[in-house]
């Protein structure tokens, strides 16, 4: 597929053209930092260096709260939640990879989640690579990278005066058909930027070994040690681009059945009606989170469930660092 080019001076014009047939969702600046939002003007877009949003863009496909159906006069009505085609512009490769990973959960051919599926088929993901890695990111160690291609329809590399646009799927190619083609020098420059983005000291994580070690440590007390300072809030999981647990509740006053995000870090998540809680303390809950990311995902999809975006590290109120936790657990010597 031929790579194309958007000159920086023509950027606004190019994006504006999409408004006719698409809703464009892009990073804009907001009170808490960068936030993904539907834009009405290309000037709102904020693509500063390697800064990513605090709130993960997984909510484009799996909103934090979504109505599954409404009951009206004994009829069930499923709302049309994605009436228009959408372009998600400016996702970072870590988040795009997360969507690709979540497709293995929600978008299976024989087991499709209708709500996810509808949103997903009507959306194109245009991700923007990071010329330098963000300070807490470790995407290059968990199977992706600052220019990882998983999940994106189009990958953009920022050059000095233009954006180098690399279509990865046929849908992506169709969208940028009318753009001018990039020449060889620009192609080379883009390659250079992509190569220079990785941090040399970072080593790829040995996932099978981590998985094995985690299973070995399953019944040890190390989980209590690493989770001691955990507060039990939902920051790490709600901000995680691949966490997808949800809870379905009936909002009786609205006659709606709603699906909300939920998190394994809450005590009530696993509490049973009898009062018994199979994960009674923070240790078990933290174990679930780490095991899910680095063992169960590896079991099921041979990929780590962590895309290395670093949100849980930078936003955790007590600075629990998933890198350090995994390190500590895997270096544990079990007799």
């Amino acid at each position: 597929m031929m790579p194309k080019l958007i000159k920086k001076i023509e950027f606004d014009k190019t994006i504006s053209k999409w408004f006719k047939s698409y809703d464009v969702i892009a990073p804009v600046s907001s009170k808490e930092g960068i936030h993904f939002k539907r834009i009405k003007d290309p000037k709102e877009i904020k693509l500063d260096g390697n800064q990513n949003s605090i709130y993960p863009p997984k909510n484009v496909f799996l909103p934090q709260s979504e109505v599954l159906f409404t009951v009206k006069n004994d009829n069930y009505e499923m709302p049309d939640q994605a009436p228009r085609k959408r372009i998600v512009f400016g996702m970072r490769p870590c988040d795009a990879r997360a969507v690709w990973l979540l497709d293995t959960i929600f978008n299976k051919a024989d087991d499709l989640d209708l709500y996810w599926g509808k949103r997903r088929e009507k959306a194109l993901i245009i991700s923007v690579g990071c010329a330098s890695m963000c300070s807490n990111g470790f995407c290059d160690t968990v199977g992706s990278g600052p220019f990882g291609k998983d999940g994106s329809d189009i990958l953009i590399t920022e050059l000095d005066d233009a954006y180098f646009v690399d279509p990865l799927t046929s849908a992506g190619e169709a969208l940028i058909k009318s753009l001018p083609e990039a020449d060889d020098t620009q192609g080379k420059n883009a390659k250079l930027i992509q190569k220079g983005s990785v941090i040399k000291e970072h080593q790829a994580a040995d996932l099978p070994r981590i998985r094995e070690k985690l299973y070995e440590a399953f019944n040890t007390s190390i989980w209590k040690d690493v989770s001691e300072s955990c507060l039990g809030c939902g920051v790490c999981t709600y901000l995680c681009p691949t966490c997808f647990c949800f809870d379905i509740v009936d909002e009786i006053d609205r006659s709606e059945r709603v699906r909300n995000w939920d998190t394994c870090m809450f005590r009530v998540y696993s509490a049973e009606a009898s009062g018994h809680n199979p994960r009674p303390t923070k240790a078990e809950r933290t174990r679930q989170r780490i095991m899910h990311k680095f063992a169960y995902w590896v079991d099921n999809e041979a990929a780590s469930g962590c895309t290395g975006c670093g949100r849980c590290i930078s936003q955790c109120p007590v600075n629990l660092d998933i890198r350090e936790m995994v390190q500590e657990i895997t270096s544990l010597k079990i007799q």
């Binding site: 907001s30 934090q64 709600y238």
Partner: peptide, 12 residues
């Protein structure tokens, strides 16, 4: 309206 109901405020 920015609240994501992570309850970090409660737990902290």
């Amino acid at each position: 309206e920015r609240c994501i109901r992570c309850y970090a405020c409660r737990e902290a």
